[in-house]
Every structure is written in C-alpha cells, then in structure tokens.
Write a protein that binds this DNA or RNA. Structure first.
Lengths: 195, 195, 195, 195
DNA sequence: CATGAATGAGTATTCATTCAT
DNA sequence: AATGAATGAATACTCATTCAT
C-alpha cells in the first residue's frame, strides 16, 4: 500500500504536468487526484520540483532502453534510420503523455544551467544524435549513403525526428505527419543517387 | 508619451515572456521593468493574458508579411523552398525573442479550443503549409520535383522548418543546424532523381 | 488613511510580538487585528521579519533619545546613575510592551551574526554602557566614587539596570524590585566609604 | 538500550531547545539528531511540550541540589552571598546550555498561568530568593550587614545574580561581567560602613 | 520498543486584479 | 493617463501528531 501511493502520485502528476504544464499544476491537484493529502507528497518527495524531475528521470531511463534495444544487425544502415522514425512514431502513439513531457520544454525555471531537468534533456538529445551519427558514418563507409558532412546531416535528421514526434503528439490525427512518407523522404535524402 | 508607454509595456512583456515564460512572468515585473505602475497595465490592456495575445498577434502580422514578401518569381520552385529555410534561419538569428515566443508552445492555459492564441498559431502553420504545398504542386507539375503525396511531404517539410528554427533559437551556436546543409538535404529529397 | 494603516499594523504587531513572541504571532493574526488583509502587510513590509525589525528600530530610536535627554549637568555623578535607574523604571511602567520587545531576546532566528535585530540590541547595550562608564570615570576623577576597575563595574551596573527593568516588566506588582532601594544599593556600592 | 534512547532524546532536545529555541526546534530535528523516529518521541513523551518540561524539571532538580549543597557553616554571612555568585558563575561556564534553557524565558506559550514550566521557574526564583533572604536576615542580626529593607535588597541581589548568569551565558568572553568584581560590589553594598 | 506511512490545521507569501482619487 | 492602496483566492510547503503493524 505504501509504494502504491508513491507510484500513484507520480502517475497522476505525470498526467497533470503533461496536460496542464508544470506551472499550472498545483500540489493540491496532484494530491486530490491521487486520493492522498498534500503532506504525503512531501513525505515521498522533496517538493513539487522533485516530483517532476523524478518523472523525467524515469522517462529518460525507459527511452534510453528503447533506443538501446533497436536492432543492431540490420541489413542496411538506412533500416536503422527507418527504425528510429518508427520508434518515435510508436512512442507518440502509445505514450503521448510521455512524449508531451519530453517535448514541452520544461519551464525555463527548471532549465537553468545545471538543473537535472536540463541535463536529462541534453543527454537524451545526445543519445539520439550519436545513434544517427553512427548510422551515417557506417552508411557512408559502405557507400550506402552519400551523406556529408555527417555532423550537419545528423542534426537535421534529429530535427526531423523531434518535430515529427512533436507533431504526432500535439496535432489532430488528420494533421499528423505520415510515418511512411517521412521514411521515404529520408531515404531519398540519404541514399546514394541511384542511377 | 501615452502610446509610448503602451509600446514599452509590450516590449518589456515580450522580453519577459520569451525568457521566463508566461507563467513565470508577473504583472509586477512587467510594470516595474516598464517603469509604470500595475494599474496602467490594466488601463491599456484587459489583463495579463491580453498583453500576451496582443504580442502574439503583432508577431503573427509581421511574420505573415515576411512570408508574403518572399519572391514569387524564382527560377525554380526549389528556390522558394530554399528561401523559406533562409527566412526562418534569419528570423532565428535576428529576432530570437520573437522566435521563442512563437515556438515555446504557449502555456496549455492559453491553448484551449478557441483561444486567440491557439487560433493564431494554427493560422501561422497554415500559411507556411500552403506556401510549401504551392511550391510542391508547381514543382511536381513542372517535373522539377517528384514529391508525392504532396500533403505528406508538405507536413514533413513543415516539421523540418519548424524544428530548424527551434534548434537555431534554443541551442548554443555550435550545436545549431546548418542552413546550407538543410537546404541541400531538401534538394536531394525533392528533386527528381537526376540520372 | 494610508499611513494610518501602516501605523496600525505596526502597533498591532508590536502588541502581539510582545505578548505572544515572534514565532507565535502569525501574519494572519496581525492582519485581522489590524483590520486589514494579509497582502497589505506585504505591500507595506517585505515580510513578517521586516515588520519586527522595523518595530525594534523605532523603539531603539526612541530609547536612544531618552538616554540622550537625561540631564548632563547634575550636581553629582551619582545622580546620573540614579537617573538611569529611574528612567528604566519609568519605561517598564509606562511602556511595558516596548520593554518586553527589547528584553525578550529576539528569537535565535533573528539574532544571527549581522542581523539588524542583533545589531540594534548590541548598539543599545553599548549606549547604556558608555553612559555608565562616563559617570564612573568622572565620579572617580572627582573622588566622588571609588569604583574600580571601571570596565567591570560598568558591566555589573548594566546587569542591574537590565534585570531591574526585566523584573519590573515581567513580574507581578508585588514581586517587582523597588526603585528607591536599588538606587540606595548603588549608592553604597559606588560612593567612597564615608567615614 | 531503551532508557538509553529516551536519555538521548532528552539530551538532543535540550541542545536544540537551547540553541534554536522551543519554537524553532521541530520534532523531526529532535528525532533525526537522536537517531530515532518521530513516533518514538511520542512513545516516551506525551508531546514536544512534555519533552521540554521534562528537561526543565530535571534541570531544576539539579539546580536545587546545588543550592542545597552550598556550605551552611561559613564564617560570615557574606561568604554565602559570594558563594551564590560563584555557583552561578560556574554554572554559566560549565553548563552554558542548561543556563540558556533556564534563562531564555520559555516561550510565552509555555508560560501561562499554571503551566508546569512557569511553576518551575517561579520555584527556582523562590529558592534563590529565600537563600538570599536568609543570609541577609542573619547578617543583619549579626550586625555584619546593614541591609534593609531585607525584601527589597533580596530582590535586587536576585536581579544581579540572574543577569550576571545571563550575561556570562550569552555574551562573548571579553564582554562578560567579572565574578570577583561582582562579589566586591556586593560586599560594599551590604557590609556595614566600616569606619 | 520501534517504525513507515499518513494527515489536519496551519503559515508565510504571491499574484492578478480593482478601487478611489 | 496615471497611481497608491488594497484585496480574494490561491499556493507551495511545514509541523506536531497519530495509525497500523
């Protein structure tokens, strides 16, 4: 019953932060919707901020694992890029709340210099960046791609993946970008001109 | 001196909203930094929210004009896409504050159903969308592009442009995406395979 | 009507701080008893602490003036010591609340290193100390007193004056020390053995 | 181990109450510094208040014994007064914490009408008072002193002893009153003019 | 004896907004 | 057009205390 309530608080808070934002979520709301009293929040967490960063940390954990579990032995390097897009499409569809939390830039208050929150978001970007960079370098080496300079293309693909997920998360179904088309566009952009 | 102060209030508010966010900016801060008293804010505006939406409206006005002023008689359709990227790059560099205000999704509080704020952001997206769509259709017609289905590609390019500006605005100089590379990537993705 | 309310707040707060102590006085109590709302406290003062230190500062001001106004041209030096005792007796009787505020050592919270509160109380002690010291030195010089070493006797008389006022303030009438007897005791302790 | 912990709680609480004051000491602080949990405080004591009064009671017990143990067969009555000053000087030096607890008037909250805390402090004052009164009466009878009216002088000496200890406890070493000088001053004040 | 979990009642402080002038 | 004074409604957070085990 104990771990139970802490878990419940985190879940409720995650939902509220995702839909109303950090600043527009009150500790009282979290408490009431979790069916506990406010002081219990402070028994389990140091404060509102810690509730938030805890959520972000767990999310990052899971996200990192998902990236790590992407298949490494694909036939082509491009398949890896395609997988990355698919993964983000899936996250946006299955866990829109989590996506929201990652994307809705934490409030500036929590994005200062060395705040946990900022650190995590930066680490997340680095993870994806290095995944992409790796693909590009291998692909170039194998003459599969013709993607240069690698650094720049990496960043652009990162843009694409980020905003693809953002749009999938925030837009109405009919206005969301199409996964297959996105993959195709990447294919044309990356693969060696196929004469 | 009157119009003067109203202007000052708007400028100061824009700066604070951009750097601290809507929720973390107080009317007192706006008043003090504008060298006026709080009641004057309420003389000129209906409230904090109106100050914000006013700013967004003006911004949207200027932005629309910039899009409208993009040359219509380019040699190729692709040049128009390139111009769009260049424009957003320029905005991010020259008016980072304005870019911030557009991008940092207004707080959910101001994004409800038919709120001015939401309407404007949607209109802005539509403007760019239709600009892109136009290019693609013409380009396809002229056999310059091979971009189908147009709707999907439009959305993907919108993604790219949006996040490109977002990254230019929020990241450190050295981590920003490169404009020229972005344009090149679009070229490869759009132009007919040049065998 | 404006200055009025600020004054009222200070008076009410002084009364509550004196009778309940700083920690056991709530801002709500102060507000209610002053017939204003809590936010007004924060309009006029930076916070609860500032209300307190403001009171102490004013008190110190008045106290300093009272010491300054003690007659300088007395026939004997001892008369000055007697006057000091009389003054404190009078303060304890006429302004017990003020006396209380001075004596009930501010809560440790407000007594840290360079806190205004601590500074003021130290200054107050210094003022009385130097008044006493002056008398003793002059008295010794005139062979009126035989009080040595001056520093030590100064401190002891300070003790006496302080605690005399404290007792007058905190004890029931019938248990209060007697002013005349106190003066007499000082006389015997200070004056040259009168053979 | 049981009595052990109760003892520990009392010691820790005494330290915290002495340095931070009753109101600024939380039960959690006491528990943590005692290396126990809060509910244990409530197992051993009825509440925070009881912890405090228990401490004061024990202190009073010890203090009473010290007064009782002062030598009764001194050569002169004055010697007894001198011994009283010496005792308080010693307490201030060797047990400053205990002195603090006695002197820092319990918070007004605990000083109401018939609260244990108030009763104890009054009893303590009575003990010292009667000790002094006794000396004075005997001294007067023996023509050693010339201290009249006894009641008044008693109270004044009580003042002196109290504040002497207070200053020794709260002031920096160099600003503390000197014991020997204090005794000398008492001697001059009390002893029959020695012509 | 001992504790992890939980809470009722506060508690100082903040903020957008309004009123009287 | 402008302001000094004032407020209703929150808001994050704290604390002494208790319950179930």
């Amino acid at each position: 019953m104990a771990r139970n309530k802490k878990k419940k608080i985190q879940e409720v808070a995650a939902g509220l932060f995702a839909s109303h934002g950090f600043d527009n979520t009150t500790t009282l709301q979290i408490a009431m919707e979790s069916k506990v009293t406010e002081p219990l929040l402070y028994y389990h967490f140091k404060g509102k901020e810690e509730i938030f960063t805890n959520i972000i940390e767990e999310l990052f954990q899971k996200y990192s694992e998902l990236i790590d579990e992407l298949p490494r032995d694909t036939e082509t390097e491009f398949e890896k890029i395609a997988n990355l897009v698919r993964l983000h499409s899936q996250i946006a569809e299955e866990h829109p709340q989590s996506a929201m939390l990652f994307l809705s830039n934490c409030p500036s208050k929590l994005m200062h210099k060395h705040h946990t929150c900022r650190d995590i978001l930066e680490k997340q970007q680095e993870i994806v960046s290095s995944y992409i960079q790796n693909c590009l370098q291998s692909g170039n080496a194998k003459k599969e791609f013709d993607a240069r300079p690698v650094d720049h293309i990496t960043l652009i693909l990162l843009c694409l993946v980020n905003e693809f997920m953002r749009m999938k998360t925030t837009r109405e179904k009919r206005d969301q970008p199409n996964m297959q088309a996105t993959i195709e566009l990447c294919r044309r952009a990356l693969l060696k001109a196929h004469l």
